[in-house]
Amino acid sequence: MSVDLLPPPGEFRTTQEIRDAKLAEKLARRRKLMLLWSAPVVLVVFLAAAKLLSAVLLNLAGTSAYEKQNYVTATDRFASLAFFNVVEPWKAPFNEGTAVYATGDFFTAKEHLDVALGLVPTAPEGEPRGEEECMVRTNYSLSLEGLGDEAMIASDFAMATDYYEQAQTMLADCGESGGNGGEQAEQAEERQQQSQEESQQQQEQQEQQQGDGEGEEENESPSEDESGGEESQSPSEGESGGEESQSPSEGESGGEQSQSPSPGESTDPRQDELEERNQEAQESREAEEQQSGGGDGSGQNW
């Protein structure tokens, strides 16, 4: 028998008891090492669980604020989900963009929803879009529609038409019957199509009015250019007895500052027509002065 197996003085243990004690000591050391090795894994699992729980709590808090129409608070809480929600990262910008949309800031909402659209899972090419993707696309489309409505109010019909077209393109395969966008997407698509048609009509009317305005400017009466220069003014400018400009009806053919050409010298029919109209206006004004005893200096714009 080995000396190591002998019991200490004053204590008697059998060989089996000594072997069991050594085995228990060995197992205890192994468990301690395993616990130390697994501590980082346990810590990571604990942090992950805490992060997921925080994401759930923040999402509930944001949803509660949104339902109470506290959209600014909801936006802040949804923004925090970008750090905590690692499983579904698209939900943070989607919820944040939806909350911002409710405040009326359509442009900022579009920016957040654009980020969500880049993170949301998409269906393979050739297959229908998934429900989650259609959720993002529907709200994205509503933001574009809001921008189009703002452009309509500002009378920028070209920009409004462009936004409505983008909104309908965003809803492709989601707003159609049988799509995964639901009833809201279908209603939005119909409304955007009507708004686009209205915007196009307003744009056409605006362009037609601008064209008519430019045509009127080009067709203005050449009373100053074709009647003898700046010093010779027609009665339409309110001069009933000026010394510098005399009407042809007054019989003054030798005026130094305004001389109207004789019919034989006139080669421009527009100038002849203008002189005839000026003469008729002068005669009419003189007749009124004779009846009322004087003139008021007013004239008729041609």
Rank of each mutant, 00 (worst) to 15 (best):
E230A: 13
P235C: 08
L58S: 04
E204L: 10
P261W: 06
L117T: 06
Q202T: 02
V3Q: 12
E183R: 12
N95H: 12
E276K: 14
G126L: 06
Q233K: 12
A281D: 12
R277C: 09
E256H: 04
L27N: 05
P121G: 00
G126V: 06
E220C: 12
E283F: 00
S199K: 11
M170V: 15
G179V: 06
T75W: 01
G62V: 02
A287N: 00
D272Y: 03
R13K: 14
E217C: 05
V120I: 06
T15A: 15
I18V: 15
R77S: 05
N301H: 13
E165I: 10
L36W: 03
L147K: 09
D149P: 03
Q166S: 13
G295S: 03
P89R: 08
D296S: 09
E286R: 00
V3T: 14
G179L: 06
M34G: 01
G182Y: 03
V100R: 07
N180D: 02
K110C: 07
D114R: 14
K91V: 05
P235E: 01
E237M: 12
G126D: 06
G215M: 15
G215D: 15
L36A: 08
T161V: 11
D212C: 02
P222W: 12
L57Q: 12
Q200W: 03
Q300V: 13
A61G: 07
D268G: 03
Q209P: 03
H112G: 04
G228F: 06
K32Q: 08
P40N: 04
E256C: 00
I18C: 11
R137E: 07
E275S: 11
Q233H: 09
R129M: 09
S266W: 02
K68L: 13
E231H: 09
Q203N: 08
V87Q: 11
T161H: 06
L36S: 05
S38A: 15
Q166I: 00
E243M: 12
R29E: 09
S143W: 09
Y71I: 08
P124C: 05
T138W: 02
Q194E: 15
D173A: 14
W90Q: 04
Q201H: 07
V44K: 04
A154Y: 05
G228C: 07
D173R: 14
K91S: 04
R30S: 03
G97N: 07
Q168V: 04
E67T: 13
E197A: 15
S247P: 05
W302P: 02
K32T: 07
D156Q: 07
G97C: 08
Q196W: 13
F107N: 11
L5M: 15
Q246W: 11
P121I: 03
R30Q: 08
R277K: 11
N139Y: 15
E216V: 09
E273Y: 05
N70W: 12
D105E: 14
T161W: 02
S236Y: 07
A99K: 08
S240R: 06
E239H: 13
R31G: 01
S292Y: 04
E165L: 09
S143H: 11
R191C: 03
A49P: 01
D162V: 10
G229H: 10
Q210P: 07
G242R: 09
Q233C: 07
A61E: 10
P269T: 08
Q187M: 08
S141T: 08
S247F: 01
P235A: 02
Q279P: 00
G295H: 01
V120H: 06
A48N: 13
P269R: 05
G10L: 06
Q233A: 11
